[in-house]
Nucleic acid binder design. Structure first.
Lengths: 114, 114
DNA sequence: GCAATGTATATTATTTTCACTATATATGAG
DNA sequence: CTCATATATAGTGAAAATAATATACATTGC
């Protein structure tokens, strides 16, 4: 099994970078970041996400819609309910980065410096 | 040497999550994402960043200021010039995620699905 | 069919971001 | 001190994000 060693010199393709920025933008909102953190554990319906987050139903739907449009999450119907789940492998990787950083450096790793 | 295995079950601390969202938000703009990609290779002054990016001087300064306020980058004076550099380890990790994703999955990995 | 539940959308007001122009500040050279 | 270079900030207007309320739509069970 080969692990690719990614050199720092790999340049991000302009198209890729553009799409990536769009995805990252979606994670730049605390609520949405927390939603994907929840969804990472498995699929959830809107009402359970809503309850978990303590958000209104429309706001919850809106966040999910935005993330769906950017390809972060996807959904399927299950009877009455819409089940949402993470649809992009990059999301898992990015969340792993965050957890890793929190575990290794603690909360202060992200403190403002200036 | 021990590599920490980060379980998916590590829950992100609310404070950490809040700060992380702030940092991630800064990367959610294509120009800023490209700027940190540049800075990752070493420090650069404003005018060289500006030239590389093809942005106006005020816009360049503004992006840098925002990122400085969030702790993504820092700077020091070198004579006439202000040298900017990446100040947060998380940035490197996130960029590595992106490069890794691009290399392993190509540009289409981030395509919209819905 | 109707009512109940779950989700999505429309509308609107507020706030925030973005990008531009003009101007101010700081350093170095002379 | 003066000028040139490099950077930062102020002020403005347009565009986008956010959040709230009201309403529409879809599915289930009767």
């Amino acid at each position: 099994m080969m692990e690719a060693t990614i050199s720092e010199s790999v340049k991000l393709d302009p198209v890729f970078l553009q799409k990536a920025a769009g995805i990252i933008k979606m994670l730049g909102h605390p609520d949405r970041l927390r939603i994907v953190e929840l969804l990472q554990t498995g699929e959830h319906c809107v009402s359970s996400i809503q309850e978990y987050m303590g958000l209104s139903q429309p706001i919850t739907s809106q966040h999910l819609k935005q993330m769906r449009q950017r390809g972060l999450v996807s959904r399927h119907r299950e009877g009455n309910k819409m089940m949402y789940f993470v649809a992009n492998p990059l999301i898992f990787k990015l969340l792993t980065c965050l957890r890793d950083t929190q575990v290794n450096m603690g909360c202060d790793a992200l403190s403002l410096l200036d």
